[in-house]
């Protein structure tokens, strides 16, 4: 089907976009459109106004500034997947960006759209949680940084209000020895993940895990941190056995239910597999 008719604006600045958002009741932001346009074609979404933010220069780019990597919300997934600095400094982000949907969708889709849309099975929220990234949100009254831990509030729901714009994501690159990775089991080719996990680990001078962040999708109504699995590993030296217990903890503490695409047991097994896989890769990458 065709989308329902709408008014269309393509502002050239954040302030112009925010102004439009505040004036129009029934508006949706258009970034890459790879989630929004399919929904509009099915008329699951029928915004009266579309505000295309693809022509705002401030929200593009991948920039290293000191200890942080700033990625504009309009940055295309495929650009992130092929960025050398991202693959070296934020390998879990590179891994995840390479698995979203397919080539064509990755060329249009954006990191901001994937985060702000917050489909429970989206990949970027999981990565953002594992890295403890900060989300930079603009409103008419100014900008603020949101912590990733409290950012995802439910299915398709984040701390970005309907009159605000997610402008960029800030990843802090730590000096401590660390390793990170992303692992994903597909539902089917080009589809959402059945389960996915991003792991971020830091090692202290005694070879013990001083930071353990394990985030996952496919086990809740949003991307979450697996706190019980993290507790299993924190303060200990990494080993295959330790990783196995963390993944078994993920299996046993998972509160999934049957759904149309998989039953609970399948989801639990997929989850424990991606937890184990991501942790093994993250440990291997510790540098």
């Amino acid at each position: 089907m065709l989308p329902k008719q709408f008014d269309y604006y393509a502002p050239k600045s954040l302030s112009e976009a925010l102004d439009l958002l505040s004036k129009k009741d029934d508006a949706k932001l258009l970034a890459g459109g790879q989630s929004l346009i399919p929904m509009m074609k099915l008329r699951l979404a029928t915004p009266g106004t579309i505000i295309d933010i693809s022509r705002i220069p401030d929200i593009r780019g991948i920039n290293r500034k000191g200890d942080s990597v700033y990625i504009g919300s309009m940055e295309r997934i495929s650009e992130i997947a092929s960025d050398k600095e991202v693959s070296l400094l934020l390998p879990a982000l590179c891994d995840a960006a390479s698995c979203i949907a397919d080539t064509q969708v990755r060329d249009m889709g954006t990191i901001g759209g994937n985060i702000a849309n917050a489909d429970p099975s989206n990949d970027m929220p999981v990565v953002v949680l594992a890295y403890g990234a900060k989300l930079n949100v603009f409103s008419k009254s100014g900008s603020r940084n949101e912590s990733s831990d409290s950012f995802f509030t439910g299915p398709y729901s984040t701390k970005v209000n309907s009159d605000e714009i997610l402008a960029s994501v800030e990843f802090n690159v730590k000096k401590a020895r660390h390793g990170s990775a992303y692992s994903r089991v597909d539902r089917q080719v080009g589809d959402y993940a059945l389960a996915a996990c991003a792991a971020y680990l830091e090692l202290d001078d005694n070879g013990r895990l001083s930071t353990v962040r394990i985030a996952a999708s496919g086990c809740s109504d949003r991307a979450i941190r697996l706190e019980e699995s993290e507790a299993v590993m924190l303060g200990k030296a990494p080993s295959k056995k330790l990783i196995k217990s963390a993944s078994e903890k993920a299996y046993s503490s998972s509160k999934v239910e049957d759904s149309y695409y998989a039953n609970a047991e399948t989801k639990r097994r997929a989850l424990s597999h991606v937890v184990e896989d991501a942790l093994l890769m993250a440990v291997k990458r510790i540098r």
């Binding site: 790879q34 399919p38 074609k41 099915l42 080539t103 064509q104 969708v105 249009m108």
Partner: peptide, 22 residues
């Protein structure tokens, strides 16, 4: 439904599904 890719064209040299672009 943005699945099949029969509508694939290059947009500034990169493949996109033209049925999922305005």
């Amino acid at each position: 439904t943005s699945n099949c890719g029969a509508c694939t064209v290059l947009l500034d040299g990169k493949p996109v599904k033209s049925c999922t672009v305005l």
